[in-house]
């Protein structure tokens, strides 16, 4: 029975709940803007890797090429969306 218990998944679930609560905490605790953003970014990065490793089994594939291609594409789209948005909506705004 113990062998069948999906301990990794349950731990992952608890971790993601905790991380979400910490992120929520940013608006309740009295923090400076920078501190808040730093906490959010760190939480987001941990959260994303948690999901990828524990639930989406990244790295368990045999084909490294497909893996890197996928990650490359994802990073491309993510970076473009975030910095592109900053560019259009803030930096490049007259």
């Amino acid at each position: 029975m113990a062998r069948l218990f999906p301990i990794r998944h349950v731990m992952g679930y608890i971790f993601s709940l905790v991380l979400s609560l910490v992120a929520l905490g940013v608006i309740y605790w009295d923090l400076t803007f920078t501190a808040g953003i730093v906490i959010l970014v760190i939480c987001a990065l941990i959260q994303a890797s948690l999901q990828l490793v524990l639930f989406m089994h990244i790295g368990e594939t045999s084909s490294k090429k497909q893996l890197y291609l996928n990650i490359g594409y994802a990073v491309f789209v993510g970076v473009v969306t975030v910095f592109g948005t900053l560019f259009t909506m803030i930096w490049g705004f007259r």
Binding site: F76, F87, T88, F93
Partner: peptide, 25 residues
């Protein structure tokens, strides 16, 4: 497929963004 992610602001050129933004898109 790559370029399609780099053009979206052409839908709101008239928003009032600067010349850099509109030029790029």
């Amino acid at each position: 497929s790559l370029l399609s992610f780099l053009v979206w602001a052409h839908h709101f050129y008239t928003m009032g963004a600067g010349a850099m933004v509109n030029g790029f898109f």
